[in-house]
Design a protein around this nucleic acid. Structure first.
Lengths: 205, 205
DNA sequence: GTCTATAATGTGATAGAC
DNA sequence: GTCTATCACATTATAGAC
């Protein structure tokens, strides 16, 4: 696999450096070192740190499991859709903690740098997911299958329950689990089922 | 109020600078400018940026509503305790978005800088809160007042539902609420009641 | 205590040889 | 394309006069 072009090698190295350190923390020198070249070559291929960052970001963001349309497509009962969404999210977060941290950190530092591309990616991949999910929930409410709840609240509840433990991992480990006789991985393993039950219980009429 | 010592003025200015920009983003020059002095004086009172940061951080972190012991002390029914905790958390987050962002950003950049003091603060203010909350939940489960649920899962569910919308505010605003005909403030106003209902429903036997 | 001036370092960007 | 050398700038830290 040594036939990668220098440009690709730089891209890959930059990808890792930015994901690990964030824009501010990333160092051009460190990227050059990862490739085994010097900084001047970075400038030759990508003119500036900003441009290199902009080149890498889409590759990072498009990995987010935003497009869960396939789950909605399938003709499964509502409960099962919820379950699949939860598993998809938590599964992704388990496998990609660095990406989650990266996105969050950049958004916190000021969404400006990510905002534009973020919205682009969503509108491209998302394909009105939220609108369709909203519609689905409203239908279930009207049919009396679940309690009356505003779709946007339910959607955010689902995301909150899946995502927060990874964001607040430090606190979860050092405060809540400290004396619980379990570790983070075990806790998260339990949690997949736990969250599904919690949600389904909460919306059961 | 002009009788503050220079040292106090520096402390206050540093507090604001660090909270707004984070450790990496904060500039010693900016702090000096806020006070109306020059950088050399910062060095006179606090030797380095690190030491100034360490001096300020406890003041920031101790504001977190970790010690919710008073809520547990009161002899209210379990449901009401949940409700009060949710209101306390969301109320705090509404009033102190910058503090939340600060803590989160520093934890994401690597908990090392905050970790030690964070744990200290918790152990001092927290006073076995989690242990007591855990005990309380276990008692409710055994009494059959709520469904069987692991205390640590329930605790994190509560925190998740309160905190996440503020963390993911950008996404909430730009994705979920985009076409919902509402804004973040309205959404969060609704949410206080919504979250309480959601939780109580979820744990109802 | 407070200032001016400057050192010391780190980082991104560029010039120019090969 | 790739390198060495260097610039330009920002930022923290410090020396020394008052």
């Amino acid at each position: 696999m040594e036939n990668k072009s220098t440009e690709e090698k730089i891209f890959d190295a930059a990808y890792r450096e930015f994901v690990e350190k964030g824009y501010e923390g990333a160092r051009m020198q460190a990227i050059a070192d990862r490739v085994g070249i010097n900084k001047a070559l970075l400038n030759y291929y990508y003119r500036t740190k900003d441009k290199l960052f902009d080149a890498v970001v889409p590759r990072i963001i498009t990995q987010l499991p935003i497009g869960i349309n396939n789950i909605l497509e399938k003709d499964n009962p509502f409960e099962q859709k919820i379950e699949e969404i939860v598993h998809l999210y938590i599964g992704f977060l388990k496998k990609n903690p660095l990406i989650v941290r990266f996105v969050l950190r950049e958004l916190l530092n000021g969404p400006d740098r990510l905002a534009k591309i973020f919205v682009e990616v969503i509108e491209h991949k998302d394909n009105n997911l939220i609108a369709r999910l909203t519609e689905l929930i409203e239908k279930e409410v009207q049919a009396g299958n679940i309690i009356p709840i505003k779709p946007e609240q339910l959607i955010i509840n689902i995301i909150s329950l899946c995502v927060f433990p990874f964001i607040g991992r430090f606190m979860v480990e050092n405060i809540i689990l400290k004396n619980a006789g379990t570790n983070f991985d075990e806790f998260m393993k339990d949690r997949e089922k736990e969250v599904v039950d919690f949600i389904l219980n909460a919306i059961k009429p």
